[in-house]
Design a protein around this nucleic acid. Structure first.
Lengths: 332, 332
DNA sequence: CTGAAAGCGCTTACAG
DNA sequence: CTGAAAGCGCTTACAG
């Protein structure tokens, strides 16, 4: 198997002790310039690379963090993960990717495996009202940042202002004169979707407009379910002049259902999505949507986590709320 | 900070030595049933979880692997990563995600950081003809599996038969009577795209048909570049009756360019893509495409890596070639 | 079946 | 500035 060169090999070659090699490499502790030179040459010659495990064991740090998400195949998470990773790399950290499919046992399993001295901190994009294990971690002063979804408790988090985003999306439709807006929403037990529902409601209430509850479908996820949900509304024969889907995939599915019925977009029904996936401008007609700063959210969450890890004392929790941008294309 | 319970705490509480705790937990070495019981109770009571670093340092294993990909935002990689992770989890491994953006220095940086005893193996989805560092790793008998892209050298790899896939895609267009097929291809220095080009050529050659080189555009990546590439062909005034894009995103971009010119799909120009992204059936008209078994590729690559890691002796390299499936929708 | 000891590869007070 | 020693938390021959 692979020959591993250790700090002792370097010490021997450079004619110094292991301690000195360690010091020369750390840079923090003064070492005679000439000695340092010899050490560096030996390191070079042997292609030495310190064993991160031994270092971590000694220092109680691994420079590794865990990123816990529902599913990387959900199209907002690749960009989120990139944001996390790019910042992690910048600070010398490495990222362990954990998909849970919203399963609490899977998540607990990951947390147990990663927590004890394995990783220096965790980022959760899976928080729900049932995430008591996250509260437990925070209580133990383990570095944690929430991402995308926040919790009732005041914990460090980076999220989008979903209430305002949904309010703005709905208001656009209202300004366009629509009065019967169908809402295709995600699981309302997830904070994100509850807030979007509230924003939708508030935009109506502000103008004193009634909402037809029958036009609201919740717990929908993905293009296919979006298609089915829209088709169901159509089959019930309910009239509507606009449709707000709380994800672009649901919007795409809905558009397909509308087109199949010969309903024209935006003439008969206006449509607005959420996420601004990069294919939304390629579809026909190009979709109006709320653009989430996904990459930025990931990056900010990791910045925050590094700050928490490096802080001696406990920091006051900080919730960063970013804003979604309205991107107007041709469906409105 | 977090109180860490060690094996010694458990030993003290159970009234045994640390060795015995270790044995009781490992299961491999016989321990008196009653003693074992006491140990397990102590473990439970203290919520003890062995320090993976110390264990790894001692055993020379970390149960961690690195997954090195160009960019998780490229839409085939989320499914690939899920495949890798699910199998990893099944075998008790954890996955470190590394995006390189095709940059060799970034990749070298990751490899250096991960290699020395950090990770037990690496999966590369970034191989090109310039990846000499991968050959070096294999020479050192470090466990490596290539994914998506293979190399000239015979190394363990899990890929799609791209030649055949492109051949089949092209043949479909030819069978439909098309004789002037535009090809929008990726970077031909990457094995994958070179093979797809060859499959395209072979399908023509087999029928004794000529190819108009001017209808071939290479080095194109993503929806926007696909749009531009198709627009460029259109602007040159070159006639074509079909278009084969070697990714769905390029196909979607191309379709947009065609529609803008009022060209009807499939009546005037037939289009075929590659990947079978989950939004392709939602676009208008639904896209015919070659479906890649992305999840399965990731899963198989990880299975192979586990086998290599656990094998005492060097295994003979194995290249697994999976087949892409033709999914016929409405653009052909 | 069980304990004491050595050692995985590092880092860091402790002396000099 | 530098070396010898101790120790991070485990596991595993080595004795009994």
């Amino acid at each position: 198997m692979l020959e591993i060169t250790t700090i002792n090999d370097v010490a021997r070659l450079a004619g110094v002790s292991a301690s000195t090699v360690s010091r020369a490499l750390s840079g923090r502790i003064p070492v005679d310039a000439e000695t340092k030179q010899r050490v560096l040459e030996a390191v070079q010659q042997l292609n030495y690379c310190p064993n991160a495990l031994a270092k971590g064991l000694k220092e109680g740090k691994t420079y590794t963090v865990g990123l816990i998400i529902p599913n990387i195949r959900n199209p907002i998470f690749p960009a989120v993960a990139r944001g996390v990773e790019d910042v992690a790399r910048k600070h010398g950290y490495t990222v362990i990717l954990c998909n849970t499919d919203e399963s609490i046992p899977v998540e607990m399993d990951y947390v147990n495996k990663l927590q004890k001295r394995w990783v220096d901190g965790l980022i959760f994009a899976t928080a729900t009202s049932k995430s008591s294990h996250i509260l437990q971690l925070v209580k133990e002063e383990f570095p944690v940042v929430l991402l995308v979804r926040k919790m009732e408790m005041l914990l460090d988090a980076v999220v989008v202002n979903n209430h305002m985003a949904a309010y703005n999306a709905t208001s656009l439709l209202l300004r366009r004169g629509c009065r019967k807006i169908a809402l295709i929403n995600g699981n309302p037990e997830v904070n994100v979707y509850r807030e979007r529902l509230e924003g939708f409601i508030e935009a109506h209430r502000e103008l004193g407009l009634a909402i037809n509850e029958k036009l609201i479908t919740q717990g929908v996820s993905g293009a296919r379910e979006g298609y089915n949900a829209c088709k169901a509304i159509l089959q019930e024969g309910l009239a509507f002049d606009a449709l707000f889907a709380t994800s672009d995939r649901k919007a795409m599915g809905s558009m397909k259902a509308l087109k199949e019925k010969g309903i024209r977009i935006p003439e008969d029904v206006k449509v607005i999505g959420f996420d601004d996936l990069d294919t939304t401008e390629m579809i026909d007609p190009p979709l109006t949507t709320m653009s989430q700063p996904t990459y930025e959210m990931g990056a900010k969450a990791m910045e925050r986590l590094v700050k928490i890890i490096n802080s001696k004392k406990r920091l006051k929790p900080l919730v960063e709320e970013l804003e979604a941008q309205l991107v107007i294309r041709s469906t409105t």
